[in-house]
Structure formats: C-alpha cells, structure tokens
C-alpha cells in the first residue's frame, strides 16, 4: 500500500481493509510450529521409505514405481501375517491330513478346528445349492436332516462329494396309464402318512417300483452287516420328507410321469451333483473336512 503504515509498531503485515481492519503477524506457538515441521519431515521420510511413487519407466507392466528402502510393504506384512496363521494352523492341518474322518470326530478339539475350517469350504462349494446351513433349497436335498438318498455314513458322504451323484428315474408317461399313475401317486402320499393300502403295495411291486425304491419303499435295497446300506439313490417314500418340492399328490404324479434326469423328456426332474475331486476343485483333505462338516450338520449316521 502506498504511504506510511498508519499503525506503526504493532507488528502488522501491511494488509489493510476498510481503514482499520488489518492483519497482524502473530505466529503460532513454537511448539505448534515444531510439530508442523516434524510432520513434514515425517512425510518426507515416509515417501522415501515406502514404495508409492509412480514412475514413467516401466521395466515390467505395472512395475513402474519407487521400491522404497528397507523392503517394507503392506503386501509383505500381509504375507507374513498369513504365514503366521498357517504356522498356527499347521499342527491341526497335519493331523487332519493324517487321520481319518472317524478319528477326527473322536477328538473334540480337532473336530472343532475341522468344522471351523470346513465352514469356509462349505460356503464356497456347497452352500449355493444346499443352503448356508445345509437347510437345502427347492430341488436340492436338506443336509441337516437324517434322510440320505445315498447314505449318511462318513464313507458314503466322502463318495458323494468326491465323485458326485446323478439320480435317475424312468419317465412313466408312456408306460403307465393315467389311472395307474394316479393310484401310485396316492399310494406314495398314503405311505408318508403311514396308511398305505394292500392294493397300493400290489401295484407298487407289480410296476417294478421296488427295483429302485426297495422292498419296503424306504429307498434301501439291502442293508449290509456293518449298517452300510445299498441304494441307487432312490427316495425314501415312507417318510415325511419329499425329494422334490413342493411334495404331495400332484408333485408325486409329476415325478412319476416325467422321471428324473431323463434325456429328451420335457419336464423331467433335475438331480445332479458334480464330483469335486476329478474337476480339481477340492483335494482329498478338503473333502475329508467337508465330510466331517456335513456329518455334523445334524443327520450324519
């Protein structure tokens, strides 16, 4: 500004507005300024220490940045953390790998570890169809109950997860008359309510249903001495659980008419579970963990 300073001796910056409004030169407290410069010094150190600056020269695609000094990076911290975790898990993992599913279940601590570990696998590979807690979905079996198409023993579960399953039932629309289909469907409903008739049983046996669903219609063809069952995956018709939603007379009729997994038959039921080992999705140890997990969902035998 022109002219002499109208407010001499008060340490102003020489900036004036409206005659007497002026800016004074009051520096912040020295401890504050020390903190300020210390922060800047810290940032400079940090910028050198940590890999962060993009550089125009890229020896490898995506590699153009300063590498920092002392090799400190967050990805390294993550990897170290992961390694710590794996070391902690190692004692359990080696046991799980060595022991059989039966042996794991005999050890409460190891069972706990296996359940916690398999929960992740179950979420990744099983929950999409069978539900997050094995509660099933329309068309996909419940794993939390004790009704098993192929058996709920540890060995059978292992077999199921390893190789997968594919159900099969002939479509009877061209084989049976409408009256016969009606009668059989009614018989299946009666069975589940515990009041099947002799005529029903006669028709059931005459039409060969027992070939798959078994002599007592519980889906079991034979029981081996060890308790293991022989089945082809046909549903247990005597219980209250329906393989295909929504269950009941019409649903049963539909299944009898169009069958299960029948190529070229429109309306046929789908019942396929992929194998998880041949496709490389799971290794045998992971399968073992899942066997334990599924067995403990509520209905393992």
């Amino acid at each position: 500004m022109a002219g002499p300073n109208p407010f001499p001796g008060e340490n102003n910056t020489g900036h004036f507005w409206d005659d007497n409004l002026r800016e004074l030169n009051n520096p912040p407290p020295s401890w504050w300024m020390i903190g300020f410069w210390a922060s800047i010094a810290f940032v400079i150190g940090y910028l050198i220490l940590y890999p962060m600056w993009p550089m125009p020269y890229q020896p490898v695609e995506g590699d153009g940045f300063t590498k920092g000094v002392m090799g400190w990076t967050q990805i390294k911290e993550y990897q170290e953390g992961l390694q710590d975790l794996q070391e902690m898990r190692a004692q359990y993992e080696s046991q799980v790998a060595e022991k059989t599913a039966e042996q794991i279940l005999a050890d409460p601590a190891l069972t706990q570890y296996t359940l916690a570990s398999a929960k992740v696998l179950f979420g990744d590979y099983c929950a999409a169809c069978h539900g997050s807690g094995g509660q099933g979905n329309p068309g996909y079996p419940v794993l939390a109950d004790d009704d098993w198409l192929y058996g709920g023993s540890l060995a059978k579960l292992d077999e199921t997860i390893t190789y997968g399953r594919k159900g099969a039932m002939t479509a009877h629309k061209d084989i049976l008359s409408a009256a016969e289909v009606d009668a059989l469907a009614q018989f299946v409903v009666n069975l589940s309510q515990g009041n099947a008739t002799d005529e029903g049983w006669a028709l059931y046996n005459a039409k060969g249903c027992n070939a798959c669903h078994g002599p007592t219609a519980n889906g079991v063809l034979a029981e081996l001495p060890g308790g293991e069952i022989v089945s082809v995956g046909a549903a247990n018709l005597t219980d209250a659980i329906w393989r295909f939603e929504p269950g009941g007379l019409e649903s049963a009729k539909h299944t009898i008419l169009y069958g299960v997994n029948q190529a070229g038959v429109e309306g046929t039921r789908d019942a396929v579970m992929p194998g998880f080992v041949e496709t490389g999705k799971l290794d045998p140890v992971e399968v073992k963990k899942l066997v334990v997990y599924v067995h403990e969902l509520g209905g393992g035998k």
Partner: peptide
C-alpha cells in the same frame, strides 16, 4: 439357536433343532 435351517424334519417325522 441355529438359523439355517431353523429346524430340520427327520425321517421319523420328529423335529430337530441345532
């Protein structure tokens, strides 16, 4: 109380909770 599923119906018709 397990929520998925809230309950399971067993083969013998009884109800199971986890």
């Amino acid at each position: 109380h397990e929520r998925a599923p809230l309950f399971a119906t067993l083969s013998d018709g009884s109800i199971q909770n986890k």
